[in-house]
Amino acid sequence: MLASTALNLGSFGGPSLNSPTHNLKKPFLLPASKSLHLLSASKRLTNWKSTTSVRTAVAAVDSSDPTSKEEEGGTKKKYHFVVANAKFMLDEEEHFQEQLSERLRLYGERGIEQDFWLVIEPKFLDKFPNITKRLKRPAVALVSTNGSWITFMKLRLDRVLQESYEADSLEEALASNPVNIEFEKPEKWTAPYPKYKSGWWEPFLLPTTAKV
């Protein structure tokens, strides 16, 4: 069986199933960017306060977790991320939604402050020209202060780019350019259940940016 199938190897070719190129073939709606309202200065301030307390809480959790390597040394904090096009992150990989929900549920149960977020069209991407030139837009990043978890997420998602950066505040770290996300219905839908509802990602955005 092996010998005969070896002959067939010559006919291999073409892009792989489910490779990013494959994903890209599926058209998706690039909406005219309908902007989210810009935050007022006062809103920013209140938000900044609340995120500061969040950060303190995160640091407290981290110190009790031997596998977390993040330290809050100085004002800068390190953020790790994986990024890919929105279609891949928010529409095609439905297990991703389950994973994020599972994590948020656990954090709630154990009283752990959230340390991961989704960012649609993140501003920090400007710092990574090598990433942006290889990225379909709009892009979505999964950002976390837990670098180890982001490594795990890279293993899970595979078709994503991984990097890290530093930022002074959570708001700065997660700043995003406003864009409206909509996906076309899939051409083929083989599942005996409907897709997760559009907008499932909202609980994972930084709260202030989630509000339109």
Binding site: N8, S11, F12, G13, G14, P15, S16, L17, N18, S19, P20, D158, R159
Partner: peptide
């Protein structure tokens, strides 16, 4: 005819 595949890594 199979589909070539694998990790991006």
């Amino acid at each position: 005819k199979p589909i070539e595949s694998g990790s991006m890594d």
